[in-house]
Design a protein around this nucleic acid. Structure first.
Lengths: 206, 206
DNA sequence: TTACTAATGGAACAGGAGACCCGTTTGGAA
DNA sequence: TTCCAAACGGGTCTCCTGTTCCATTAGTAA
């Protein structure tokens, strides 16, 4: 009897084929476009609907808010993750990781997207969860690189692989999102070498 | 003749005394309150005006937007900065710095404020500049601690003091704003010890 | 192919954000 | 103390955001 008062399922879950999928693709593309153009504050559902060529009612119904759009975009991005590097040495892998992060954040398209995602996560719990999940996935993908280094004895036994990877990314994201300093190539190299030096000294052994 | 079309000075700059200063104090307090209550998206000029007991016209005229409020709050915070520690050893000073950053970000009042500031900086250039300036000030205040360590030979000659400090803060802010992982006390200690280990290994020598 | 209904999209509507006008208050100089 | 204009504040207006209603389109099972 209370069934009609329950939360109805999000549209798109019962008939995910054909049109529904096309609409999602178009809306997420328009979302990314809007973020590149004018950042998070330019991400109005109205505009996204117009660019995507769908009714604005649909956008409001399926994504609720700008933060909902960003969260879904993030989930979509998490699915298309790139494979981690394997250069044969831990130093090479960490340098590759740092360069990848740096290239992503300075990319004219991906940079604004990540800035918006970080902003949205500060406002919206759904976005915060999606962002947390995104980095958990990323770290898990790169963990084997550090584990290979452990096997080769490049860092002390007991070193936490995830903590090494966080140490590589952290200085880059800190400059990108917080202190707003430029992300030059040598910043990335320094992040990798500092993380490696700390790991070698046993700073990440628990 | 084009004088009437020029940008008029921001209100509050010609007569900064008495009422104008009181209004600014009340508005910034209400801004902080709103951020603590509901985060950046709860920061509506209307609400701030009501809580501060001033006309909403005044808020729109002097601060323009939510981001303008955050930027001014940030400038106000930069003026009341705490003195850096001096424990006698570089390790002690870096630990104190990490603990200070961690305590600030986990503080029930300051945490939401910093989250909002980071979000606003991603949307608004004025905020981004204010945030950049804030951390430039903070780093400059703590630089002497590293320079004392340099003088004591605790890190190699040529080490960049600011880079050491960035290495301490970065993992904490990364978890706070990006990966959204909990900020425990041992995270702060590890940030300090990892930065020190990297510095000792010469990772921050240019 | 047919039937059923999930999902979309257009239109009309309410609610609030933000700008404008203008009278009132008050800081600061003479 | 007097005067002038900087700054404030209430009222009003407009535009845009976000919601609701319902007709139309199109997946999916039979």
């Amino acid at each position: 009897m209370e069934q009609e008062t329950r939360l109805e399922a999000t549209p798109g879950t019962v008939r995910p084929g054909g049109r529904t999928a096309k609409v999602r693709t178009a809306v997420l593309a328009a979302t990314q476009e809007a973020l590149v153009e004018g950042g998070f504050h330019a991400l109005t559902p109205d505009r996204v609907a117009a660019v995507a060529g769908v009714g604005k009612t649909t956008v409001y119904r399926r994504w609720r808010s700008p933060a909902g759009l960003v969260a879904d975009l993030l989930r979509d991005m998490a699915e298309q993750s790139l494979p981690a590097a394997d250069t044969g040495s831990l130093e090479g892998d960490l340098r590759a990781n740092a360069a990848l992060v740096r290239d992503t954040l300075t990319d004219p398209r991906m940079g604004p997207v990540f800035a918006a995602v970080i902003a949205a996560a500060a406002c919206d719990q759904e976005c915060a969860d999606a962002l947390h999940g995104f980095y958990a996935t990323r770290l898990a993908e790169w963990a084997p690189a550090v584990e290979r280094g452990l096997g080769r004895g490049e860092v002390p036994a007991g070193t936490d692989p995830l903590e090494v990877l966080r140490a590589v990314s952290a200085p880059l994201y800190y400059r990108f999102a917080v202190s707003r300093e430029p992300l030059t190539a040598d910043v990335a190299e320094r992040a990798a070498s500092a993380a490696l030096a700390a790991a070698r000294a046993g700073a990440f052994v628990f």
